[in-house]
Design a protein around this nucleic acid. Structure first.
Lengths: 331, 331
DNA sequence: ATGAAAGCGCTAACAT
DNA sequence: ATGTTAGCGCTTTCAT
């Protein structure tokens, strides 16, 4: 593949001039610049990225580390990130941590090794990622979940408030034994949603019973099992709050198997809107999170930090909103 | 950040020895190697990727260019790719082309510029990507769709046969006016599925009528519009074959609006299985594609080609299978 | 088995 | 405005 000196000799100039012309620097004679551009085009010249990155001591690449590319919530975030990054001339490397600290660590290592400009991270919670990055002066922005003891920027959703509102909504609809299916203990979003659920019970003066709470992984299979257990106990709940969309699939499967009809028999509200939520019978009431915006905001913060314009850490909290459909209305 | 010479001086050896020790080369005194490793750990040394890539004239990064990260079919492919790549020590950069040749081109440029080891591409069909890559000796594997005039490896699904089988299934269930909603003309998967649908009609000796065919983008919004038009004509179809999962959402929305019940009033089969397909009432009959496997196979082929073990181009065709549920059974 | 030194392709400081 | 040149951090001959 052609190098800068090939272009230089073809255009009859020095490599410095080629570099300047190609990077649109001022102070290059228009006529020479044209000759350079022509030569480059003829040779199909493409600057060598690694060489440029080595010399510049920086790259235009961001890492986005999420727990699951197959979760629509995270892909929506990814879109937001990519649109912003791309517009600013940055590429995005998407990595799956599968919520395993080891994998997360591994990808952080890659990001560091490749000297990527910054990292967007939805942290597993355990692991030393934050420290690793800050020690190496690589900017980080945490998305969806806060970084353990972070000094960095964070973009969150007010899950707790949203969970409380969802719970209150169920209570207002006349449900009295409201249950909650949430994610693993220690995962902030899981714990926040549970806390918000309890806030809601308290506000509605409903008794709090731990037999109405189940935890599982944020996945369909685990949630299905948890829902079976929750719904087949002697005094089952008359409504449930489900902490994410993958879990919702499992819960609805379990309900179908048990012959429990959403809405009529047991009210259901789930976190995360999905295109298929309206196709269900009854349509699913959801807590819609602004996932795309979270990604976009996070990317913007990261780019700002990369260009060194801010120093103080910021936390941006976006709000989710309840979309009421028939799975949570008794009528 | 620490460099190789920092490690060398700390360990009291030359940079060459550090390099050898760290890369596990033979012929390094065990005692020295241990000293090097210790020094590297103490300094938190991480090899500089760009420098290494420049020197080696190769990178351990693959590009995966797909049309939409929010389409579960493609994310399943991405999983397959990533698992295989990761196991072989490669990273994957995921890029959205949005099915626009310009964006595709742009990402190919990035891949070339960064000297990525290879490219996995689901081509928009138009555009000169294949030529661009081959001219620069970068291996490509096409996934889901063939490359226009490619010499490279290809991993496909036998969409045409699957569409034919789905159509025959509908005919066997007693549907007589079967319609088809497919993707844009010129997109191979869209055209293949239409051709398979026609194969099915022919095999079942059903008349072929172009008033029963609609095309739209492979997205919900367009498909919804197309379904409205298809279903509200004087002589509407009594069943439809839908060419992908995003379109299925739109089609089902349109049916709900028009008061047309899937299965009972109009039989429905859609390409791509989804977790929510069983939650619908009636559950959705689908053509399940082996997306994960496609990604895994494609990645394997690409890695093989990168290591130069094959030269002839291969085409791998995987088969899809019909998963019959109640949306296509009249009973 | 180890070290010295060249050089990958580029950019930027310096010189003109 | 343009050219000369040093050097980014690493790997890999080539000597020893």
């Amino acid at each position: 593949m052609a190098t800068i000196s090939d272009v230089a000799s073809r255009a009859g100039v020095s490599t410095a001039t080629v570099s300047r012309a190609l990077n649109g620097k001022s102070s290059v004679d228009p006529e020479l610049a044209a000759r350079v551009l022509a030569a480059a085009a003829e040779l199909g010249y493409r600057p060598n990225g690694p060489a440029r990155n080595l010399r510049r001591q920086e790259t235009a690449v961001l890492a986005l580390i999420i727990s699951d590319v197959e979760n629509p919530f995270f892909t929506a975030i990814a879109r937001g990130v990519e649109d912003v990054a791309h517009a600013a001339g940055y590429s995005v490397v998407l990595c799956n941590s599968d919520d395993e600290p080891d994998k997360e660590h591994e990808y952080i290592d890659v990001a560091l090794q490749e000297r990527m400009a910054g990292v967007l991270l939805s942290p597993t919670g355990r692991g030393d990622s934050a420290e690793l990055l800050s020690r190496n002066r690589t900017p980080v922005v945490a998305v969806d979940r806060p970084l353990p003891n972070s000094t960095g920027d964070t973009v969150l959703v007010d899950s707790r408030l949203a969970a409380r509102q969802a719970t209150e909504h169920l209570a207002e609809q006349g449900y009295r034994r409201i249950g909650c299916l949430t994610g693993p203990s220690g995962v902030p979003t899981a714990d926040d949603r549970l806390a918000g659920y309890r806030d809601g019970l308290r506000a509605e003066r409903l008794p709090r019973s731990d037999t109405l709470v189940r935890r599982s992984e944020f996945k369909a299979a685990g949630a299905k099992e948890a829902a079976r257990s929750l719904l087949s106990q002697p005094e089952p709940p008359d409504a449930v709050l489900v902490a994410n969309n993958m879990m919702a699939v499992g819960v609805l499967e379990a309900m179908a198997e048990l012959g429990v009809r959403p809405g009529r028999d047991v009210g259901v509200v789930a976190f995360d809107d999905a295109p298929w939520a309206t196709l269900l019978d009854p349509p699913l009431t959801v807590v819609a999170q602004p996932a795309y915006d979270m990604g976009a905001v996070a990317a913007q913060l990261l780019l700002g930090r990369i260009s060194g314009e801010r120093t103080e850490a910021t936390t941006t909290t976006l709000s989710a909103h309840l979309v009421v459909r028939a799975s949570s209305t008794r009528s």
